[in-house]
Amino acid sequence: MSETEFRQPTLSRRHILLGTAAVGLMALPRWAAATPAEAEAVVAKLAGSAKPAASRIALQLPQIAENGNSVQFSVSVDSPMTETDYVKSIHIIADQNPYPEVATFYLSPANGKAEVTMRMRLAKTQNVRAIALMSDGSVHQAQQEVKVTIGGCGG
């Protein structure tokens, strides 16, 4: 495994202070953070004509992440998970990561319960959302802001 530490692909305060931020960053394939608009576009594509409802889905996240390299999330959807009423997929979106998509989970009645737990990287303080697509075509969304702290030694 690499010894190089994960660098947050955004402008840190130090870079801004130095005024030299752009120089070292241009060469990277994708340095700039996604914008909330890009994240909205991802959501719009998922939801299609349905309007996401802020119900039936719960997203559990820390208010403050000690390290953006590992932020644990749990998402659960209130669904009987029967042949006629189940969650088809859950999508995790981080609005201002280099790429907004984090992970997608495909479920079926075989799961019995629509709940998953995982850990993700957050490049900076931002809004995180979970979108559930249901078997009846409805779309549900939950979101929360997570503050990502910057360590005293720049870590």
Binding site: M1, S2, E3, E5, F6, E66, N67, N69, S70, T149, I150, G151, G152, C153, G155
Partner: peptide
């Protein structure tokens, strides 16, 4: 005391080798 968002620890070593989230290993 605080160093920006960090609280300075005593630098104790009883947990090493340690999995550090900053290292991701």
């Amino acid at each position: 005391r605080h160093l920006r968002a960090d609280v300075l620890s005593q630098g104790q070593t009883n947990g090493f080798p340690t999995y550090r989230l900053g290292w991701q290993t």
